[in-house]
Amino acid sequence: MTDVRDALYVAHRSDGTIARRPMSPHLQVYRFQLSMFLSIANRVTGIAASFGTLLLVWWLVAGATGPAAFDTVQRAIGSPVGLLVLFGWTLALVFHTAGGVRHLFWDAGYGFKLPDVRRNGIIVIATTVVLTLLIWGIGLSVWAGAPMAASGAVPAAEAPAPTTTQPAGN
């Protein structure tokens, strides 16, 4: 009797003939490669970006709740831990986006040759670093110029009940 796991390795080509699927690489056996790292990183950043959506929902719900709740979430995001989480979320999102574009090119049938795979992998890493730093560079300079933010590490440090006042600038 054959190993039942063999059943999982049988696939059908589009012309109906059967083929044996390749086995997944063993991480313990394979030498580290860039494409291996990028593949794992795409999944890890996707999961990380998913948890980051909690921040988005919290921000939106706080905005819908009222000025005090919105002030709380703005302070939390503006705290050192909040900024670290936001930076991590930005990094994960930018990488997942750049890596996702690479996957879309593959899906369209481009960039499969080994030198291409290596080159577009490096492009993904370079894009991630440059875009993340660019977003944070512009973001921090805008934030520093925002009202009240220059005096402390808290963005949007408005009074808890701003009914008519609107911050100047922008």
Binding site: V142, P155, T163, T164, N170
Partner: peptide, 15 residues
């Protein structure tokens, strides 16, 4: 958009 909203208060966010 979020970069444009940095430092915004509740009123500007709602608007």
């Amino acid at each position: 958009s979020v970069i444009g909203l940095l430092g915004a208060g509740h009123v500007r966010m709602i608007h």
